[in-house]
């Protein structure tokens, strides 16, 4: 009993929960920044710059503007952070999973919206019109990527479930362990592409960073944030940079058996890093920001079509 509880606490706070995901997320932002800098022929910051930034912000004064709603303004970043940490506990890393049988794709997708909602609520609670514009754009982006996301997830679920229905991520991973990666099912390739394109939108990296857009609306929802709450929001982005690629790996590249849990986890992290490089670092280095209506149109036409094609193909047994 006690041992069980200690194991649970260990999972929640150390691995793969709080501490692990925070460290890996912040490291990924560091690597991302370094690589982008190198691609643009700059030197770039050191890889641990994310930690420096975090501790610097934690030490700074936190200002709550007069016009803000204080509870909402301060609670928003923490709620977003917590829901991301909870999500990590439910993503199976190949053969390693903390709570098996409880990972439902729909629940995960909904939990994934909470950080976005937290950003919107926090931003609007600050009372700043720039934050209002940013929150509005974040919402438009959210409407945009949610459609292709759900289409591609349904396609995978249909493929895995066959004639039975499943939304369980664990079942998806187990199915892939038996039948090979979902990515290599040709009918699922459009869905995988759609999901890859959703990742940067969900995380909000360039060229999909319409909500924060420093050069236009001064970081939008974050404009009034400073000190510890701002640090928490930066952590949210860092966590998403790990979680979204991790979901992709679990959905489309799952089921690797090396027989060794530690090796599996390391491989999982490496694959996640690779996906993160492809979906976030490279577009960041080469592309300029979308306009908000272009972003929306992009998701609801091209990306949604990819997801739909996959769903139709899978539906008719291909």
């Amino acid at each position: 009993m006690v041992q069980n509880m200690l194991m649970n606490l260990l999972h929640i706070f150390i691995f793969p929960g709080l501490l692990f995901v925070t460290v890996i997320g912040v490291l990924m932002t560091g690597i991302d920044r370094k690589l982008v800098a190198r691609m643009q022929k700059r030197v770039g910051p050191p890889i641990v710059q994310g930690f420096y930034d975090f501790f610097k912000l934690m030490g700074k004064e936190s200002i709550v503007p007069e016009a803000a709603n204080k509870p909402a303004f301060l609670a928003a970043p923490i709620i977003g952070y917590v829901s991301l940490v909870v999500m990590v506990l439910f993503i199976p890393m190949f053969s390693f999973s903390v709570y098996s049988g409880t990972a439902d794709m729909i629940v995960l997708i909904y939990l994934l919206t909470i950080p976005g909602v937290a950003l919107i609520v926090g931003g609007t609670a600050s009372g700043n019109p720039y934050a209002g514009v940013g929150a509005s754009r974040e919402m438009v982006a959210m409407i945009g990527y949610e459609l292709p996301l759900i289409l591609s997830v349904l396609a995978v679920c249909r493929k895995v479930g066959g004639s039975a229905m499943t939304f369980s991520l664990n079942e998806i991973v187990n199915w892939q362990a038996a039948n090979g990666c979902a990515l290599f099912q040709w009918a699922l390739i459009p869905a995988a592409l759609a999901f890859l394109l959703v990742i940067p939108g969900e995380v909000g990296t360039q060229p999909f960073d319409v909500a924060e857009a420093e050069t236009e609306i001064l970081e939008g929802p974050l404009i009034e944030y400073s000190g510890a709450p701002l640090a928490m929001f930066k952590l949210n982005t860092a966590l998403k940079m790990f979680i979204m690629p991790a979901m992709f790996v679990a959905l489309f590249l799952g089921g690797v058996h090396t027989g060794n849990v530690v090796l599996d986890v390391v491989l999982f992290i490496l694959l996640t890093g690779l996906v993160s490089f492809i979906t976030m670092t490279v577009p960041h280095a080469i592309a300029a920001r979308f306009k908000v209506e272009r972003l929306f149109k992009f998701y609801w036409t091209l990306v949604a079509a990819l997801g739909l094609v996959s769903l139709v193909l899978v539906w008719f047994g291909l």
Binding site: N128, M139, V140, I143, W300
Partner: peptide, 29 residues
């Protein structure tokens, strides 16, 4: 002062986001 809302020099009265002003991109498309 530092607890004021940052307007970037705009006039205060232009600052409120009304309900109709939101989700421009979506409504445009």
């Amino acid at each position: 002062g530092k607890y004021a809302t940052f307007f970037s020099g705009e006039k205060y009265r232009h600052s409120h986001m009304g309900g109709s002003d939101l989700f421009w991109g979506f409504k445009h498309d």
